[in-house]
Design a protein around this nucleic acid. Structure first.
Length: 439
RNA sequence: GUGGGCGUAGCUCAGGUGGUUAGAGCGCCAGGUUGUGGCCCUGGAGGUCGCCGGUUCGAGUCCGGUCGCUCACCCCA
């Protein structure tokens, strides 16, 4: 706690001391490794953007939570709350010249002025991965598989999380086919989104009162969305070409994921809606199995967005995965590696007389690529070794008057305590730091 | 944005019904002779008890407000 409260960390923002940064890096490494395996390239953009980039296309939820202000030039600007608009702009400028499909990813820090809660801060890092320029379900499957694989790299399995997949057009066609008027669609989507959190009766009431459905129609809609497979939708609305097309896509998506061995992670659930306005096809969210945490990841197909931002009409599909909820899930499953410091060498001098030699050896070993620390002022050898252990040194070089006189030094293996003598010549040549006495 | 719970050292926590200079363990720093870490011994730093105000002779203990954290709702990443 700082002495001056005015200097305290802002609510919803995080400091990252080394132990915490290590966790973050661990997650980033997995994200980048998954992207490498899938052939995705990393990009980034500015954290501060013109306010209009978001007010135009992002929808009111996001706009209402922007960190927005005027800069010194009088421009209306905002800290980026999501990455997709920036991606759309970047691609609007150069998508034409890029080979398709474009597989790009980024790990931006995003900002939203919201009341903070577990899993929801005012700032987070969000892995964004998108495939642009491919409209087929192959791209949808690839993107879902990428999200799943990143979590597998982190050690999570089918017992830990699942992907729930839905389809905007399918849901839309099913609602229309069930008697919902086109202008009531947004409200109906809202009801579907809340199906899990509101009572069945409340949902029925809302379908009737807010969406203008009759009793039997409302009941039929509920049964449609309560079933976990798509059979009922196919039976009841299979003749509708919109429904048939979307169902074919979803089946095909499922097949690809099954062939990749990801079947155990994937299930269909038409109650997944996603808040963002710009999704046009498949949508998915990734949840922990216990259902205790917020969604770890969400995404889908957004074929119109790039066009809306003034670019080429390019189909796109992608997702965002935040570091906060994922970190909580990993912690809960004990999948965060314990933090430990580590250096290759600690160089200790028994007395001040070996100080000059110590500096020469330290420099030589560092030049040879070793990580090396040493006491910045003289201390008893006992303390130096304690420090070496605390620094996580693999080996300690001990410079004492006796050995130095004979042109050697002891190299101690900190784990076993075994010591070997190594010629000073070797140490000064950047060798011998591995405890190889013959170096 | 709405409502509930919580707020004592870096961390985990003690501090019956208000009573002197607020404690412990761990961690941190230093010492235990210029030759050997994990153990041990000694000493030390570190808290305006989240903050502001009120009640009282006296408040870490009671009351109000505020800020922060947290849970649920809202919403969403």
């Amino acid at each position: 706690m700082p002495k001056n409260p005015a200097l305290a960390r802002l609510p919803g923002f995080r400091d990252f001391p080394p132990e915490d940064l290590a966790v973050r890096s661990h997650i980033f490494r997995a994200w980048r490794e998954a992207c490498r395996r899938y052939g995705f390239q990393e990009y980034d953009g500015p954290p501060l953007e013109p306010l209009d980039l978001y007010t135009e296309k992002s929808g009111e939820e996001i706009v209402g939570q922007l960190y927005a202000f005027r800069d010194r030039g009088g421009r209306h600007v905002a800290l980026r709350p999501e990455m997709t608009p920036s991606l759309a702009r970047i691609l609007a400028e150069r998508a034409q010249a890029l080979p398709k499909p474009i597989r790009w990813f980024s790990i931006p820090q995003l900002f939203r002025y919201e009341r903070q809660q577990r899993g929801r801060l005012r700032e987070h890092f969000q892995w964004n991965a998108d495939i642009v320029g491919e409209a087929g379900v192959g791209a949808d499957a690839e993107v879902v598989a990428l999200a799943v694989d990143a979590l597998r790299i982190l050690g999570l399995g089918p017992q830990d999380f699942r992907v729930r997949v839905s389809h905007r057009q399918l849901v839309s066609a099913l609602l229309l086919g069930s008697g919902v008027a086109p202008d009531k669609l947004p409200v109906a989507f809202g009801v579907v989104d809340k199906l899990e959190r509101e009572s069945r009766q409340r949902s029925l009431d809302r379908l009737r009162q807010e969406c203008g459905l009759g009793v039997s129609e409302a009941e039929a809609v509920l049964q449609l969305f309560e079933s976990s497979d798509l059979e009922r939708a196919a039976e009841v609305h299979g003749e509708d070409p919109e429904v048939a097309g979307a169902l074919a896509d979803l089946r095909s998506l499922r097949q690809v994921l099954d062939e990749m061995g990801m079947g155990p992670f994937v299930e269909f659930d038409l109650r997944i809606v996603r808040g963002l306005a710009y999704y046009t096809g498949m949508v998915f969210e990734l949840f922990d199995r216990k259902g205790e945490l917020r969604a770890v990841c969400g995404g889908g197909r957004y074929d119109r967005l790039l066009e809306l931002v003034g670019g080429e009409p390019l189909p796109a599909v992608g997702f965002g995965m935040g570091d906060v909820v994922l970190g909580e899930l990993l912690a809960e499953r004990n999948l965060i590696p314990s933090y430990r410091r580590a250096v290759d060498l600690f160089v200790a001098a028994v007395s001040e007389a070996q100080r000059e030699l110590l500096h020469r050896i330290v420099a030589a070993q560092r030049a040879a690529g070793k990580s090396v620390v040493y006491p910045l002022r003289h201390q008893p050898l006992r303390r130096q070794l304690a420090t070496a252990a605390a620094e996580g040194a693999e080996r300690a070089v001990l410079l004492g008057p006796g050995e130095v006189e004979r042109g050697v030094a002891k190299v101690r293996d900190m784990a076993t305590g075994r010591e070997v003598e190594v010629p000073l010549q070797a140490l000064l040549a950047g060798k011998g730091g591995d405890g190889d006495g013959n170096a």
